[in-house]
Amino acid sequence: MGQLILKVVGAVIVIAAASACGEQKARALALRVQHLQQFRRALALLAAEISFTRPVLPYAFKTAAERSSFPARELLLEAAVMLLAGGELTAREIWKKAVDRVLPETCCTAADREIIESLGASLGVCEQEGQLNQIRLTMSQLDCALEEALGQKHRSEKMWRYLGFAGGAALVIFFL
């Protein structure tokens, strides 16, 4: 009797753990969409700021960050703080450092990261129209990434949930 209870508890734990793994995978897909949306929204705010009030970059970052959420807020604030501190780093290097610090905390892929990092090359070295075009280009690249992430989410979210549960159940059957 005791052994059966132990087996049932073990089976429940295995299925719960496998389901949690599946859930985590599914959640990561949803979070990737959310994070990409946040980056896109923050870039739209940055473009509006540069277009209308034309503040210098650290202040444009700060204003856009104030109206953004994680992880875009953290990225912009990190870059703004480093820019305001001065030093020997260029805007491009500062942007890369901020990306290196913030992106690992997100569910973005290496390709998403590359898109966001690529904006750094144009930061502060173009006239207004050029700067806005570069931001818009990054936004349209993020749109593509977002579309792909949404597709993946729709295709795979449920699959990962079922797969987690089914994988756990299969393991239980295998060990029993």
Partner: peptide
Amino acid sequence: LDRALELISDSSLYAFE
């Protein structure tokens, strides 16, 4: 020279058109 331009424009050339 690129660095000089970046420094005098506060990394924000668009703001100094």
